[in-house]
Amino acid sequence: MTTMNTSIAKSFAAPSISRAAASALLAAAHAACAEIGIEAAIAITDAGGHLKAFERTDGAAFLPVEVAIDKAWTASSFGLATHTWNALLTSDPKVAQLAHRPRVVAVGGGCPIVENGQLLGGIGISGGNYLQDQQAAEAALRALGFDVAA
């Protein structure tokens, strides 16, 4: 019987968005949507893609609920904004297979939540057109001092 090395690290600390920050980001996103003039669903996921906070304005349709959650999930999955996925899915045959994943969303409105280069989760907004959703998500991130990819 061989002896295993017991000095190896068996776990690591993983950064993730706090409940308080998720709530504050939800409020900032709601304000950004109101300023743009859209009724929307807003979802915040943690670094593992699990729903952390959610809100839907009174006038938002029901379809944006799942779309917003999936935008946040997509953004947190690889730390990439959803508006970048369309080019990725069409440019590389190996990446194109991800287009068949039911939750991957390749239109604007989903952004990774990043602080000091560390992925904390994702935000997804759905209710306006793809550019309005993207602008609202980016405005919310900026309002709280999170990194926004260029």
Results as ranks from 00 to 15, higher is better:
residue 8 I to Q: 06
residue 102 P to N: 14
residue 18 S to G: 13
residue 109 G to K: 12
residue 83 H to W: 09
residue 66 E to Q: 14
residue 42 I to R: 05
residue 34 A to G: 04
residue 115 E to T: 02
residue 113 I to Y: 02
residue 62 F to W: 07
residue 21 A to I: 01
residue 84 T to W: 06
residue 117 G to V: 03
residue 48 G to F: 05
residue 65 V to D: 09
residue 76 S to F: 01
residue 38 I to P: 03
residue 65 V to K: 02
residue 78 F to P: 00
residue 10 K to E: 09
residue 41 A to Q: 08
residue 36 I to P: 03
residue 24 A to R: 12
residue 26 L to F: 00
residue 42 I to Y: 06
residue 32 A to T: 09
residue 52 K to M: 09
residue 78 F to Q: 11
residue 114 V to P: 04
residue 51 L to F: 03
residue 73 W to K: 15
residue 117 G to C: 03
residue 100 H to Q: 12
residue 40 A to I: 01
residue 69 I to A: 15
residue 41 A to C: 15
residue 53 A to Q: 05
residue 47 A to R: 10
residue 91 S to E: 14
residue 114 V to A: 01
residue 98 L to D: 08
residue 14 A to S: 01
residue 66 E to A: 12
residue 56 R to E: 07
residue 55 E to L: 12
residue 89 L to G: 05
residue 111 C to D: 02
residue 111 C to Q: 11
residue 22 A to T: 06
residue 24 A to P: 00
residue 82 T to K: 07
residue 33 C to W: 08
residue 88 L to T: 03
residue 58 D to P: 01
residue 77 S to Y: 08
residue 50 H to K: 05
residue 60 A to P: 10
residue 110 G to F: 08
residue 87 A to F: 04
residue 102 P to D: 14
residue 8 I to H: 02
residue 67 V to E: 01
residue 48 G to T: 12
residue 101 R to V: 09
residue 73 W to N: 05
residue 36 I to D: 05
residue 94 K to R: 09
residue 44 I to P: 11
residue 23 S to M: 11
residue 9 A to N: 13
residue 33 C to M: 10
residue 59 G to D: 13
residue 91 S to A: 15
residue 49 G to I: 12
residue 25 L to D: 06
residue 60 A to N: 11
residue 14 A to L: 04
residue 9 A to Y: 07
residue 60 A to C: 15
residue 109 G to T: 13
residue 52 K to F: 00
residue 50 H to V: 06
residue 107 V to L: 15
residue 54 F to E: 04
residue 85 W to N: 05
residue 69 I to R: 15
residue 35 E to N: 09
residue 20 A to S: 11
residue 67 V to C: 00
residue 31 A to F: 06
residue 115 E to H: 08
residue 92 D to S: 15
residue 88 L to Q: 13
residue 110 G to M: 10
residue 95 V to P: 00
